[in-house]
Amino acid sequence: MSAAELIHGAAVELDQPLFSVHDLTRLYGPEKGCQGVSFDLYPGEVLGIVGESGSGKSTLLSLLSGRCAPDRGQVSYRGKDGAMLDLYAASEAQRRTLLRTEWGFVEQNPRDGLRMGVSAGANIGERLMAQGVRHYGQLRAAGIDWLQQVEIDPMRIDDLPRTFSGGMQQRLQIARNLVSSPRLVFMDEPTGGLDVSVQARLLDLLRGLVRDLDLAVVIVTHDLAVARLLADRLMVMRRSHVVEAGLTDQILDDPQHPYSQLLVSSVLQP
């Protein structure tokens, strides 16, 4: 294979979506849940899903991450090896492996995403151990490195997460997810439970990490400021439907759908 072919191959790879969603639907009742959602996500791209509570954002996120099965629709993911994986046809083993290697999931409440009974270092090291790292020294080094990356004092490596503030817990959860160098991370209102000043710092950190690591992200938020800061593209959800989708700036500066207009006008512009 020539160098030109290699480069060409890599370019093709970037051209192709990492994550492809078609007609995803799961309803609990009329207009409860989500329906008819389709989109493509490319490597390194951040997609924001916005809408008020009950609009179906969280259901969609659970479906996308394979935590629950849809009534209909498909999700496919292009793995590191280049092969396409049909998420719902995949085995439970494949999904679990994905969720602890190439994917990450940042919960709104860090308590749901952390192992509260073990130290910060063990929290960060867990994914590596699941992947077969059997060297304590290496786990330790990774723990210290990632604590620094998420701006937590490495001296706290042996402390339990419950001794951490809410913002620190959320940063620890992010480190725990990113240690395995995932390519796609799902985030459910990651700044939801935090004070405004803490939120700003976390957003700053997240933005830096997403750029540096070239992460693809699907982030659910009701906070348009968060969406503006992090997302390249937005989907606006209302009563289980996507009512508008497009580039973030476009939607926030020139919303077309009446609901998007309402949503944008109800928030103070930055």
Partner: peptide, 21 residues
């Protein structure tokens, strides 16, 4: 399920914690 999938990372979490403590 964990046995079926060989999902044993958590066993080493316990050992890690012992050494750290």
């Amino acid at each position: 399920t964990m046995h079926a999938l060989g999902d044993y990372g958590v066993m080493h979490v316990k050992l890690y914690e012992d050494i750290a403590t």
